[in-house]
Amino acid sequence: MAQKKWFAPIEEKTHDIGELDLPKKCLVLDDDEDFVRVMTDFLQTQNWQVHTAKSGVEGLKKIMADDFDLVICDMVMPNLPGDMFYLAVERTRPRLCRRFIFMTGHKGDPKIDAFIRRVGGLMLWKPFQMHELQMAIQSVLRKATRMEESEQTN
């Protein structure tokens, strides 16, 4: 008696769903709620998942609890200004330091200028337009990706 085949042979099938465009995570640190709202709205239209912090201390708690693809940081904030926040991140999550965009309305402040030169940071001067932010994001992410790829090959 011939045996019945209950199951068809397994055929491997693959489906090309293209590149998944998952949102990337961004942390925005600024104590100006209206400004943060505008930035958050813009970043969300660019497929970013936005987390916010009103101070460097609050930002550090978020950095310790989660990983981010980008950090946009105001230089002048209460309870830990941008430069001190950066230095704390440098000690705890150094990989994130290449993913910072700094911003300030204090153009010409020698302390801020010296800090940005020392860390090789990218600065946006407030007020800025959203296309300037988009160009800064692309620049920072390209640079960070190149550095990470270079580290992996060495």
Score class of each variant (00 low, 15 high):
Ala65Arg: 07
Thr104Phe: 11
Arg37His: 14
Val140Lys: 05
Glu151Phe: 07
Glu11Trp: 10
Ile116Gly: 02
His15Gln: 13
Ala144Gln: 10
Phe35Tyr: 14
His51Trp: 11
Gly59Ser: 07
Thr40Ala: 13
Met123Ile: 10
Arg117Ala: 15
Leu27Glu: 03
Ile17Asn: 09
Pro78Trp: 04
Ser150Val: 11
His131Arg: 14
Met84Lys: 14
Ala114Ile: 00
Lys25Cys: 10
Ile112Cys: 03
Val140Arg: 05
Val89Ala: 05
Asn154Gly: 12
Cys26Met: 08
Arg146Trp: 06
Asp66Gly: 05
Met84Thr: 06
Asn79Arg: 12
Glu33Met: 12
Met103Cys: 13
Gly108Phe: 01
Gly82Ile: 09
Ala8Met: 04
Gln46Ser: 05
Leu22Pro: 02
Val28His: 12
Glu149His: 04
Gly108Lys: 08
Met103Asn: 11
Phe7Gln: 13
Pro94Glu: 01
Lys13Gln: 12
Arg98Gln: 10
Met39Ala: 09
Asp113Ala: 15
Thr104Gly: 13
Thr92Gly: 05
Leu141Phe: 07
Phe35Leu: 07
Val76Lys: 15
Pro127Arg: 12
Arg95Trp: 00
Lys62Trp: 01
Asp83Cys: 09
Val28Tyr: 11
Gln44Phe: 10
Leu80Val: 10
Pro9Gln: 13
Thr14Ala: 11
Gly120Phe: 09
Lys111Arg: 11
Val50Arg: 03
Leu87His: 05
Met1Ala: 15
Ser55Phe: 10
Cys26Ala: 15
Arg117Thr: 11
Phe102Tyr: 13
Val50Leu: 03
